[in-house]
């Protein structure tokens, strides 16, 4: 189980090359989040702020919940902070399990919780100025299904 909170870019291919190598792994699910440009373009950058200390702690708790619920043989969470350009990878999760159902479910669970329970805040930077991204009600509601 690996959690990394970092400013630096990461290489999804390189991360996956060494992921889920243990005995018994039958499926690996991955998700990566990318900085999305605004409809019609115009996003200069996305600034991601976080709460050093609590971020690592909150993600570790989320991963612990996932591993208590599904039999995961490996789990990786990487989340970046700082100023990111459109198209840049923001974060990724990977889960390895004996079967795909556990791998998919755990990855979705991790994503739902990272979205609204890990202390990150996004700010969009455009020519017109800057704007904090508001949390969506449906992201909070997504936690109810777990």
């Amino acid at each position: 189980m690996t959690v990394r909170v970092q400013k630096a870019a990461f290489d999804i291919g390189a991360e996956l090359a060494s992921f889920g190598q243990g005995a018994g792994v039958g499926g690996i699910a991955t998700f990566s989040g990318i900085v999305r440009d605004l409809p019609g373009g115009g996003l200069k950058a996305m600034e991601i702020e976080h709460y050093p200390g609590m971020t690592e702690r909150a993600i570790a708790q989320i991963v612990a919940k996932a591993t208590a619920r599904w039999e995961l043989l490996d789990c990786l969470v990487i989340h970046r902070f700082g100023r990111l350009a459109p198209g840049a990878p923001i974060m990724m999760v990977a889960t390895a399990a004996a079967h795909r159902a556990e791998a998919f479910a755990a990855a979705e669970f991790l994503m739902d919780y990272l979205k609204s329970r890990a202390p990150f805040w996004k700010k969009e930077i455009t020519e017109a100025g800057t704007e904090w991204v508001a949390a969506k009600d449906e992201d909070e509601a997504a936690l109810d299904r777990w």
Binding site: G33, Y51, G53, M54, R57, A58, H79, I90, M91, M111, L114, K115, S116, R117, A118, P119, F120, W121, K122, W132, V133, A134, A135, D139, E140
Partner: peptide
């Protein structure tokens, strides 16, 4: 102290209080 709480939570023994908008990770 880096754990989510609510506004009625007691501050007794608490060293660090953080205020922030709803989180937007992922």
């Amino acid at each position: 102290d880096q754990e989510l709480a609510d506004f009625d939570a007691p501050l007794m023994g608490v060293r660090e209080v953080a205020f922030f908008p709803p989180m937007t990770g992922g």
